[in-house]
Design a protein around this nucleic acid. Structure first.
Length: 579
RNA sequence: GCGCCCGUAGCUCAACUGGAUAGAGCAUCGGCCUUCUAAGCCGAGGGUUGCAGGUUCGAGCCCUGCCGGGCGUGCCA
C-alpha cells in the first residue's frame, strides 16, 4: 500500500539522519490537499528526543531518502512537516492491481491466524431486542473483516441458556402442557417476551410455583431426562427465533456457531480443581474465590473473583474461565475477541488475569474484551419504549422496511413490486446496521427511530446509491469491466483524489482488525463515496470527449464500485444494482 | 470511598493515536435537474473541545486539580 511504500523509504532515512532506534516515521494522510498527499511528522518527534532543530533533521531525512521514483514533490513546512506528493504513475500502477490485490477475498493473504469472535450471545430466555444489535452487528462485521484478510474465523455464539430463569420458564411450560394441553404451549412460545413475562408474574405471585421453579433448575442441571427434553425444546424454539432475525439481518451466524453456556457445564468442576491445584483458590464467606493482588475493592480490601457459590453453584466467571480454556486449548486461537457490553469490563479483566495466573493460557493467544456502550433513549436513560418495554429487533426491522418501501416507491415508481421490495430490504438493513456500525463502539449512543431509519447524508443508502450509479454507468455503456484496457486517467483533481482515497483501503482494513473498530471502515467508505460523487459531478464518463478517456474513467469507477461493494459486504450490508 | 468510561457546533457523531486553520451528517438559510439516478451537488452561518492550571516547537488527545454524567465495585448474567 502507498503508506507502506513510503514508510519503507522514510524509516531508513530517518535512521540515517541520526534518529534514535524506534523513532516513528509517523506518516499520515495530509490534512490539506494543498500540502500534498501524505505528510511525515516523525522528524519533529525524533528531533525533540535528539534535542536538535526539527527542520534541520527534516532536511537530513529528505537528503537521505530515496523517493524519486515515488514522489514528485517533497518539501518541508512549518516546524518540520515533510510534505509528499506522489507521482501519478505510482497511483496508477497501484490502482491497476488494487481489486485483485486488496479486494479479492481469494487474494494471497498476508495475515494468517485463527481468531475466535464471541458475539451476539443473546439470552435465550427472552426475545432479541435492540440492545442485542450492537454485539451482533459489530461482531459480524469483524468476523467478515478477519475472514477477508485470510484469518480462520471461529464464530462463537455464547448464548445464555443455563441460568436460574430457565427453571421458571420450564416450570411454566410444564403447567401449560399438563393443563389444557400442548396447543396452548405452542401458541405461547411464539412470543417469548410474553412467555417470559407471564412466567415471571406467576413466579412472583405464586410461592408454590416459585418453589417448583427452583426444583426444576436443580433437576435440569442434574440432567433429569424429562427436564432436559423440555429445556431442549424451549431452546430450539428460542434459537429459531434468533436465526430468523439473523437471516433478516443478513448476519452470518448459524446454529453451528452456537456454543452455549450449558456446553461448558461439564468443564466447570475441572476449572475449580485446576484453580485449587494451582493454589489460587480461597474460601471466603463460604464461597470459593480467587484473589489476585491487582484487584482491590472498597477500602483497599482484596476483590475476589467468585467461582463457586456457597451453595455449590457455579457462576458466569466459572463458565468464562472454562470458555477461555476451550478457546485456547481446543480451538487453538491466536486471538479471542469478546464483543460484550463494557459494563463487564472488570469481569473480563479478572477472568483473563485469573486464567493467566492459573496457566489456562497455554499458548500465545491474546484475549481481548472489545467493549461497547449502552444504547440510550432520547432522554439519555437506557433505552425503553414509552410502555417501558424494550424495542424488539423484529419490530425495528419491520418499520425500517416499511419506511424504505414507501421511499423507493416514491423515488422510483417504475419498479415492479418484487424489485421494490428487494431494494427496500437492502436499504432498510443497510440503514439500521450502518447507524450502529458507524459510531465508535466504546461510547454509549442514543437510539432514535429517525436517525436509525434515515436515508440521507452519511448513511448506508448513500453508499448504496453511489454503487448503483456506477452500475448504471456500465449498463448504459454496455461494456464489461474486464474488457477495459485503456488504463487509468488521474489528471483531474477529482480523479486523483478518488484514487488516493481508494488506495487507503488496505490500511483502514488493517486498523479495523487491529482495534476491532468497524466504524473506521464506515468513515472510509463514506469518504470513498463522497470522492466518487465529486468525480461523477465533475468528470463526465459516458460523454467524455474521447473513447479512451471514457474507458479510463469507467475503469476508475469500477475500482470504486468494487471497493464499495466489498466494503459494504464486510460490514454485512448488501448492495443493489439500481435504486 | 475506590476504579473504569464519557463530556467536541442547536441535535447526532468523527478526528488516522501528540501535528498545521477541530471535521461530517441532520436541522437552518441561499443556489443547481431539456447532459451519465436531485437518496445528489455547490455555497453560507454555526466552536473558549465542561472549567483551571501544567508538560512542549505543537494538546480535543498526555499530567494535576476541580465541575457534571454514566457504569462497575462478593455469591445474577
Amino acid at each position: 500500500m502507498l503508506k507502506d511504500l513510503l514508510e519503507a523509504r522514510l524509516a531508513p532515512a530517518l535512521r540515517a539522519a541520526g534518529a534514535p532506534e524506534g523513532s516513528a516515521v509517523a506518516l499520515t494522510v495530509s490534512t490539506k490537499p494543498e500540502f500534498g498527499d501524505y505528510q511525515m511528522n516523525g522528524a519533529m518527534g525524533a528531533a525533540k528526543r535528539l534535542k536538535r532543530p526539527p527542520r534541520e533533521l527534516a532536511e537530513a531525512v529528505l537528503a537521505h531518502a530515496q523517493l524519486e521514483d515515488l514522489v514528485s514533490e517533497a518539501s518541508i513546512a512549518g516546524p518540520g512537516f515533510i510534505n509528499l506528493r506522489l507521482r501519478e504513475s505510482v497511483l496508477e500502477e497501484q490502482l491497476s492491481t488494487f481489486t485483485t490485490r486488496v479486494l479479492d477475498p481469494k487474494a494471497p493473504s498476508r495475515e494468517a491466524g485463527r481468531v475466535v469472535i464471541d458475539y451476539s450471545s443473546p439470552n435465550l430466555a427472552k426475545e432479541m431486542h435492540v440492545g442485542h444489535l450492537r454485539s451482533t452487528i459489530i461482531g459480524d462485521a469483524l468476523a467478515r473483516c478477519f475472514a477477508h484478510a485470510g484469518w480462520e474465523v471461529l464464530r462463537q455464539n455464547h448464548v445464555g441458556d443455563w441460568g436460574t430463569q430457565f427453571g421458571m420458564l420450564l416450570a411454566y411450560l410444564n403447567t401449560l402442557e399438563t393443563g389444557d394441553g400442548a396447543p396452548a404451549a405452542e401458541a405461547e412460545l411464539a412470543d417469548l417476551e410474553q412467555f417470559y413475562r407471564k412466567a415471571k408474574a406467576r413466579f412472583d405471585e405464586d410461592p408454590a410455583f416459585a418453589a417448583l421453579s427452583r426444583e426444576t433448575v436443580v433437576k435440569l442441571q442434574q440432567g433429569d431426562p424429562t427436564c432436559r427434553a423440555a429445556w431442549q425444546r424451549f431452546i430450539d424454539v428460542s434459537l429459531s427465533h434468533c436465526e430468523a432475525l439473523y437471516g433478516r439481518l443478513q448476519v452470518t451466524l448459524t446454529r453451528k456457531h452456537v456454543r452455549a453456556e450449558s456446553a461448558y457445564n461439564d468443564a466447570l468442576a475441572g476449572v475449580i480443581t485446576a484453580l485449587r491445584d494451582r493454589g489460587l483458590l480461597t474460601e471466603s464467606e463460604g464461597a470459593q474465590c480467587v484473589f489476585l493482588e491487582e484487584f482491590k475493592g472498597k477500602d483497599d480490601a482484596p476483590l475476589p473473583l467468585i467461582v463457586q457459590k456457597s451453595d455449590g453453584g457455579y457462576l458466569y466467571a466459572t463458565t468464562d474461565l472454562a470458555a477461555v480454556r476451550y478457546r485456547c486449548d481446543d480451538l487453538e486461537a491466536d486471538r479471542a475477541l469478546y464483543l460484550v457490553d463494557k459494563r463487564q469490563g472488570l469481569h473480563f479483566k479478572q477472568v483473563f488475569a485469573v486464567a493467566e495466573a492459573a496457566g489456562f493460557i497455554t499458548r500465545p493467544c491474546s484475549f481481548e474484551h472489545m467493549p461497547f456502550g449502552t444504547m440510550l433513549g432520547e432522554d439519555g436513560r437506557p433505552f425503553r419504549t414509552r410502555a417501558g418495554d424494550v424495542v424488539k429487533l423484529a419490530d425495528l426491522l419491520d418499520e425500517a422496511e416499511r419506511r424504505a418501501e414507501v421511499l423507493v416507491a416514491e423515488k422510483n415508481p417504475d419498479l415492479d413490486a418484487a424489485a421494490r421490495t428487494e431494494i427496500a430490504k437492502a436499504i432498510a438493513i443497510g440503514a439500521v446496521k450502518y447507524a450502529d456500525l458507524s459510531k465508535h463502539r466504546n461510547n454509549d449512543y442514543v437510539f432514535s427511530w429517525d436517525a436509525m431509519l434515515s436515508f440521507d447524508g452519511n448513511t448506508a443508502p448513500y453508499l448504496q446509491y453511489a454503487y448503483s450509479r456506477i452500475q448504471s454507468l456500465f449498463t448504459r455503456a454496455q461494456v464489461a469491466p474486464e474488457a477495459l484496457s485503456a488504463g487509468l486517467s488521474l489528471g483531474a483533481p477529482q480523479e486523483r483524489s478518488l484514487a488516493l482515497t481508494l488506495l487507503r483501503t488496505e490500511d483502514v482494513l488493517t486498523q479495523v482488525r487491529e482495534q476491532g473498530l468497524p466504524h473506521l471502515l464506515c468513515t472510509h467508505l463514506y469518504e470513498v463515496a463522497t470522492a466518487f460523487t465529486a468525480f461523477y459531478e465533475h468528470c463526465p464518463v459516458l460523454s467524455a470527449p474521447e473513447e479512451r478517456l471514457r474507458d479510463q474513467r469507467l475503469a476508475l469507477a469500477h475500482c470504486c464500485g468494487e471497493t464499495l461493494r466489498q466494503g459494504l459486504e464486510l460490514l454485512g450490508i448488501p448492495v443493489v444494482q439500481r435504486m
